[in-house]
Every structure is written in C-alpha cells, then in structure tokens.
Design a protein around this nucleic acid. Structure first.
Length: 584
RNA sequence: GCGCCAGUAGCUCAGCUGGAUAGAGCAACAGCCUUCUAAGCUGUGGGUCAGAAGUUCGAAUCUUCUCUGGCGCGCCA
C-alpha cells in the first residue's frame, strides 16, 4: 500500500506486478534481475523513472522499446496505481517515466496528520540489532581532528540507522592495555619529576606532548609515591616501576575529557568498552576456542591464526613466542563479546591507518563463525584524514607552533552545527578539506546557514500569520490542485525523498547524500519562496484561505523535513535567525 | 615489491549495484529588494570525466594496463 511504503518502493511493486502479468502472458521466465526505480535527471521528465525495459528486453526477445510499451500498457490497467498518475511516458532509449499527481500527498498524509514523524514511523522496518563502534581513540591524549570527524560521521549514521528501524548500540573501545599505557605512565613520571625540578630528557618512546604536564597537575595530588632518584638511569627504572600508578588515574582523566568533548559535540555513547576488561580471561577463552576449532597453529614458539585461508595476506600472530597475547587476539576476544551480546550486525569505523587491518579482522570473525551465512554482517568504514585549510593552504597541525591540533581547539573556534555538517559532506573514505574560512568568516555563504535559514523563514511565515506552527495540521485533502505549478510540486516531491534517502543510507552508509538532500531542499524552497507574487503565503492565506492552507501545509512539511534532516546530522534547526547588521 | 583509497570546471567536490544533454558550491561577470528575512533568486562563461585498450544497445561508472598523489604492509597498539 502506498501509505506504508516509500513512493519508490510502491512504484517498484506496481512495476513488478505488471512485469509478472507480462511474463505470464508471454511465457517468459526471468532470472537474476532487480526492479530499479531511479530519479530522472530533472522534474520535467517526471519524479521517478525505470530503466527496466532496457535491462530485461533480452529475456523477451524484443526490442527495449517494445517491452517498455507493453509494460506501460499493463501499468495503465493498474487500479491501485492510476489514481495517482498524471502520465506514464516512454522516453528514449526506453525509459519508463512516471509523472505523479499531487493527490499522492493526501494519501501519505491522510487525515489531520501530525506529519512527517508519523510517516517515517510507518515506513520503519525491523532490521535487527547493530553495534557501531567508532572514535575509539587511544586513552593517551586529547581527541584529534580525525576523531572529531569519526564522531560526527558515526553518530549521524547511528541516528539514521535508528530511524530506518535498527536497534542501534553506540560503543567506544578504549585501548587501556599494553605498551602504550606503560609508556604513558613513564612519560608522566618524567613530567612529574620535571614539575618538581628534575629536568631529565624524555626517553625516545615517550609521549612528547605538552598536555601531559596538565594531566600530571590534575592527578599528582592523589599519588602516593616514594622519593624518586635523581640520576638518569636510576630514574628510568623508578619510572618503569611506577608507570601504572601514573597511567591508571591519567587514563581515567583523559577518557573523562574525551567523553566531555564528545558530549559537547552532541555525541554520546551507550558504552565505553575497556580492553583491560578482556584480560586475561576473555582473551584466554578466545584462544582456547580458536584452538579447539583448529583455527590456530604453533610455529617458532608463537601461535598463528590461519587468517590466510580466509582472505588475509598471511597468517597472523595471536600469541607471541614469549607467551603474551597480541593486540589482535584481544581484538578478536572483543569481537567475540560483540557476537555473544547478540548483535546481528557489527559495524566499525576506523582511522586511516587501519585499512590494512580489515582483512585480518574479517578473517577472525570468519574463524569465529560469524560470517557463515552472510558476509555483510561485519563491515568496516575507514574515516580518512582531514586537512584544515586556511588562506588556501593546509594548516600544519602542530601544537608547538600554536596551530590546530585537537578536537577541542576546533570546537573553540567553529560552531558545532558547522563542524558536523562539514564532516559529513564528503564520503568517509575520502580525504576531507575543511575550509576554516568558509566555516567562519564567510559564514553568510555557508551551506549550514543556508539550510537553517530556509527553515527559519518558514517559521517566520507562521509567526506572521498568527498561527501556531506545531498545532497547524498538514492537510491537503481537496486542495491538491493548489500544489501544481510555481515550484510547488517539485518542492513536495523533493521533500518526500527524505524517506528514500534514509533507506539508502541505512544500506550503503553514504551519509553525504543527506547533506546534499538538505541543501537541495533548502534550494527548492528558496526558489519557491522567491516567486513573491505567486507564492505569497501570507497574502494567499488572507485572501484565498484554501490555497493558503495548502501552501502552509506544504511549507510546514518542508520545515519538518529540514528539521528532521538536520537532526539526523546532529545539527540544530533554529526557528528564527537574524543576520548581524553589515557595515552600510 | 604487494595491497587499499583517490585522480571529474580555475579551486573544493557530487554523480559510480552501467543509463537520458556530466551537476553543485566557491571564484568571475551581468541582472533582481513598494510585496512573508537579499544569509535570497535568476542568467552567462568555464569539462579530451588522468591516459590507453576492452566488455555492449549504452561507460565518468565495469575489466586490464600505464601515469600521478595519499596511506598501509610488526611476535606495535
């Protein structure tokens, strides 16, 4: 039924029916095909189009045009379809183009509807439980710009997955175990001594960052440590001995700070999962499990996973020859936990330096039996690096030079709304150039404000009409004819695509298309709005109430869709905006 | 050496389960405020889709090769 499907899916079903009828009539059996409904290049060709006849003509032993003609004839006998169709046309080479009537809006919003939310709920399908792991930065310092991008991308994706019907679980994996923790502790010990007057050079492997000084200040009051030796070699031994005493409270402090930065970025997690909680028990159990299933073998005193049999380049070490488990084994144990926790899908967002790790992890999940029936249950998105651009040049990220380095630095300068939009306007796997000038000084040309502005304008119209936006009913019944012409119909149908955007993104994770949809929707509205005579909503509402109400319903729908789209990207939708006065 | 990602307008990028004349923003130029916010709208110019070959009704999209750029290839995490 039309009201329970997106328009695209509904058309696809109608086309399927016609195809079935035709197949039966002609005794044709089809195999391996899908019914595709696309958008034509522009609205003058209709709102939807299908290349089906060109794909299937070979099965019918006909020219594509003939098949298309047959399909169109059958479609025209479809009583469920035709009430909403203005015309179905053939276009060369053999496209079937659908031009729908505006009365479709009354079918979708049947009665004094509270609008879009209700429609999107009707379209929701149960899609199972998904765990999305993202950001997962090391607990050794503040979050950087790539983490910010991962946070924006991951959180927005989660919001969309949830609207599409997934039960979404957001998780942050904290690597609070192993060498790097040890070295964090040693580094802090040196900074601690430095604060008390002992200026020794930092060891080569130590973290050099200045921020460690601040952390030492925060945690040193709680530390109860013996006197440290002043001599270099003895001090190093002392630092090693007490490394964990420094590292543990420091990590607590660092993670708390990361969490706060993320919260200020409107990103919150359901869980922070600590790697240390896997040691030793879960790690050992996982190793025993792999061993019992013949997935590992011993060589040169170490244990290897048979990952090369599952698509990896080579076998990977899981237990070193000295008996210690590798990071990889802990990660396998972590993913085994995810499986045990009952998730249908596992999605990870990783940094740019991890793509070599994907095949390895996939082979591990395969060894755990997670991918047997469906390889798509596990996927990894790589969030690529971010270049900050200022004055047409790449900003070198160097704290020493007082330049941008952390997520906090970015947030201090650029509004959250702008950051979040900029971070998702490109595909995750592409390098992103973040233009600081476009984000700040040229704010009037900023796409985020352009979208928000269109939204605010609609609310302004309601205010001036003396109407309560939230209570105004979306109701096109009997007024559908007013949706013809003057960019009205284009606006309507473009807005309705939001539901299809959500569907697509839940499948392909291509978030940038929502950013484009938002911009285009604002643009369609601006075009509508700039026809100041034909689409003067206020004037029409006073003089021709029927038409005025139709347009108010339309623009309320636009505002709700913009608000929803912005929400899905974690961006606010202000109801009023005012430009600061420019110099005359 | 092997692998992954990319190369589209002056700049930044969309478009990629093959489809209709390859789109947008920025930059440039020219118009539009007596009318719901000009943070706006309209128009103009700008392209051998890195190159070559192939697959077919049809290729920016798929395959192969070449060139260029970024990143990965630890018994680190």
């Amino acid at each position: 039924m039309l009201k329970d499907e997106t328009i695209r899916d509904w058309l696809s079903l109608r086309l399927k029916r016609s195809l079935d009828i035709l197949c039966q009539k002609e005794g044709v059996r089809l195999s391996n095909y899908s019914i595709r409904i696309d958008y034509p290049p522009n609205f003058s060709l209709g709102q939807y189009a299908s290349p089906l006849a060109m794909q299937l003509s070979r099965f019918f032993d006909k020219k594509p045009q003939e098949l298309a003609h047959g399909l169109v004839q059958t479609l025209r006998d479809d009583d469920e379809l035709m009430p909403y169709v203005e015309k179905i046309e053939l276009a060369p080479p053999a496209f079937i183009n659908f031009t729908l009537k505006s009365n479709i809006a009354s079918a979708i919003f049947p009665h004094h509807s509270n609008g879009l939310e209700e429609y999107l709920k009707r379209l929701m399908r149960p899609r199972g439980k998904i765990i999305v792991e993202f950001v997962s930065a090391n607990p050794t310092g503040p979050l950087n710009i790539v983490s910010a991008r991962a946070a924006a991308f991951g959180d927005s994706l989660c919001r969309i997955l949830a609207v599409a019907g997934y039960q979404v679980y957001r998780e942050y994996y904290v690597n609070d175990y192993g060498n790097q923790v040890y070295w964090l502790g040693i580094s802090l010990a040196y900074r601690y001594a430095e604060a008390l007057g002992l200026g020794l050079p930092l060891p080569e492997n130590a973290y050099q960052g200045e921020y460690l000084k601040d952390i030492v200040k925060k945690i040193s009051a709680e530390l109860k440590l013996p006197e440290f030796p002043k001599e270099e070699k003895a001090f190093f031994e002392w630092a090693c001995e007490h490394a964990m005493a420094f590292a543990l409270p420091a990590m607590q402090y660092i993670v708390a700070n990361q969490r706060q930065d993320l919260k200020d970025f409107r990103v919150e997690f359901d869980n922070f999962f600590y790697e240390s909680s896997l040691h030793p028990q879960a790690v050992n159990e996982t190793f025993q499990f792999l061993k019992a299933n013949g997935q590992v073998y011993e060589k040169d005193g170490a244990w290897f996973l048979l990952s090369s049999e599952k698509g990896d380049d080579k076998d990977r070490v899981v237990i070193r020859s000295d008996g210690r488990p590798t990071y990889f084994l802990a990660d396998i144990a972590y993913h085994r936990k995810k499986i045990e926790r009952g998730f249908d899908k596992i999605l990870n967002l990783w940094g740019p330096d991890h793509h070599g790790y994907i095949a390895r992890m996939r082979s591990a999940l395969s060894a755990l039996g997670f991918l047997q029936d469906n390889p798509e249950r596990f996927s990894v998105l790589i969030v690529q690096q971010v270049n900050l651009i200022e004055g047409g040049k790449t900003v070198v990220m160097s704290k020493r030079l007082g330049k941008f380095q952390t997520m906090r630095d970015l947030l201090n300068r650029i509004p959250v709304d702008v950051c979040r939009y900029f971070f998702v306007m490109r595909g995750a796997s592409n390098h992103l150039d973040f233009d600081l000038e476009l984000a700040t000084t040229q704010s009037e040309r900023n796409p985020v404000y352009y979208i928000q502005y269109a939204h605010a304008r609609i609310h302004s119209i309601f205010r001036q009409a003396g109407l309560n936006f939230d209570e105004f009913p979306i109701d096109f019944r009997g007024k559908e004819s007013y949706l013809e012409g003057h960019f009205r119909k284009e606006l309507l149908f473009y807005v309705l695509r939001l539901a299809e955007e959500i569907q697509d993104i839940a499948r392909n994770y291509e978030l940038q298309s929502l950013a484009v949809w938002l911009y285009e929707t604002a643009h369609y509205f601006s075009q509508f709005y700039s026809l100041k005579q034909e689409n003067n909503v206020l004037g029409l509402y006073r003089e021709k109430p029927q038409e005025g109400e139709a347009l108010l319903s339309l623009i309320k729908l636009v505002a709700l869709a913009l608000e929803k789209g912005l929400f899905l990207l974690g961006i606010s939708a202000p109801r009023a905006m005012h430009r600061e006065d420019e110099i005359p």
